[in-house]
Amino acid sequence: MTSDRSLALRRSIPGTALFDGELAERGFQLNAMCFSFNEAANRKAFLADEDAYCAKFALTPEQRKAVADRDVPAMLRAGGNVYYLAKLAGIFGLNVQDLGALQTGRPLQEFKDYLVSQRAGIDPAIAGLHVSREIA
């Protein structure tokens, strides 16, 4: 059995909701639409008529609004999973660093600086390249 402590973590890690059955059920339509964006023709169809494309996947009103608003936190609350949402973001030319900036409310450069700043936390014992057996 998954322990109560682990189950509680699904919703209690700060700034994080682990994507479980509840979210997967809530987000099915939105994620299904995003999954369809593996195909270029579908990306094109979405861009050509976003309303019609979203209707085809029967997005919930909450999901439709989140997509219309390009509101990533709202997409997550509506059950979107980041692996699939990344395909939608790609249509708008956004990568995962853009997504990070959007979700944390930081300007992009500040978010990138935050990523780089974490290098300072590396124990020198594991930093960088270590070659234990040289091969000619």
Partner: peptide
Amino acid sequence: LEGERAGFMNPD
């Protein structure tokens, strides 16, 4: 990648 904790890493 996702949520307000996006960008989290843990070298320890």
